[in-house]
């Protein structure tokens, strides 16, 4: 287990280093870093000062290590627009995004397990066909379009829910959250629903496929021959075996949920990291974009590492075969 963990840790660090090289060359190599990092209205003296401070008169490898060193000590630059260090700017928006992402993951799990199990265990029934056709449509529709239709239906036409924004928040464990006010919850419903749809669809399909495959397996036949009640077979035997791939996918999808939240946050004007990214792109606030890439990569690599280690803990075969690439 330790050897496996170390091996995965080294791989993760390698990926992070690769991304840092790509980002470094995109910002400092291809583009003119002065162009990217100095605000357009800066004076000539300010430019010179920045060149010296960034060490742009140094050789390239030296510049890279300076960049890396700064990044490791948490310094990814200062926002042109907001005038504060970008890392703290992005981390300040993190709670809003995490709230949305975690809530939508829970929603997806709660909805998809019963639907997927039903569709997988009764594949020829009418509701199962309906569920599976629904997944194709849910999968096909672009996320921003689903969000807009939710707004049109529930906010504009029915007038039940607010169209945009985060609503009232209260501090909980030092973080601002909208989970404990009625106004906050009202604002959360549509964005959460919109963000949950792709994952719900994916999990329903995975669980359905897993459940229908499991019914033909020997361990299920044996359990039935032993006279174990159907409900217990499903809950104790089938569900457990299906959950391994589901956990993996949920973990991997956590990263893409953060990415997809960019779209949902834009549609619903949700003040999270994704909205910040889009706003920064519009305002040409490059340091924020660069820092967003580095922090998201860190998040991705970290989550993948955790998922792989969990996976190894759940399924002993993984360790023996040296892990999945």
């Amino acid at each position: 287990m330790t050897a496996y963990f170390l091996q995965r840790l080294i791989q993760s660090i390698a990926v992070l280093l690769a991304v840092s090289v790509v980002v470094f060359f995109a910002v400092y190599g291809i583009g003119d870093p002065i162009e990217l990092l100095v605000p357009p209205q800066a004076s000539a003296a300010e430019r010179l000062a920045l060149i010296k401070r960034l060490g742009l008169d140094q050789p390239v490898w030296h510049q890279y290590f300076t960049f890396l060193g700064n990044a490791l000590s948490g310094n990814l630059g200062t926002s042109f627009v907001h005038g504060v260090p970008v890392v703290s700017l992005i981390l300040g928006r993190l709670p809003a995004t995490l709230e949305l992402v975690l809530l939508s993951m829970i929603t997806a799990a709660v909805v998809s397990v019963p639907l997927g199990l039903y569709a997988g265990l009764n594949p020829d029934s009418r509701p199962a066909r309906f569920i599976m056709a629904g997944t194709v449509i849910g999968f096909s529709l672009p996320s921003f379009w689903k969000g807009m239709m939710l707004v049109l239906l529930f906010s504009v036409w029915l007038g039940w829910l607010p169209t945009a924004g985060r609503g009232e928040t209260v501090a909980f464990l030092g973080l601002q959250t909208s989970l404990f006010t009625w106004d906050g919850l009202e604002h959360l419903i549509l964005p959460t629903l919109n963000l949950a749809i792709p994952n719900t669809v994916l999990m329903v399909r995975l669980i359905a496929a897993g459940a229908s495959e499991a019914t033909t397996q020997d361990y299920v036949k044996f359990a039935r021959a032993k006279g174990i009640p159907r409900r217990r077979i499903v809950n104790r035997h089938i569900l457990r075996n299906i959950l391994i791939p589901v956990v993996t996918v949920v973990g991997i999808e956590f990263g893409s949920l953060v990415a997809f939240s960019t779209i949902t946050e834009t549609v619903f004007s949700w003040p999270g990291m994704g909205k910040l990214l889009i706003d920064s792109i519009y305002q040409l606030d490059r340091p924020v974009v660069v820092a967003y890439v580095m922090l998201t990569t860190l998040l991705f690599v970290g989550v993948n590492l955790i998922v792989d280690v969990l996976y190894a803990a759940l399924d002993p075969r993984v360790k023996l075969s040296g892990g999945m690439t």
Partner: peptide, 19 residues
């Protein structure tokens, strides 16, 4: 290929077009 597939396409394309 593994490296590319590790990131969601929307994010990569977004950042690329931003620059």
């Amino acid at each position: 290929v593994d490296f590319m597939l590790g990131f969601p396409s929307i994010l990569v394309a977004l950042v690329l077009l931003a620059s």
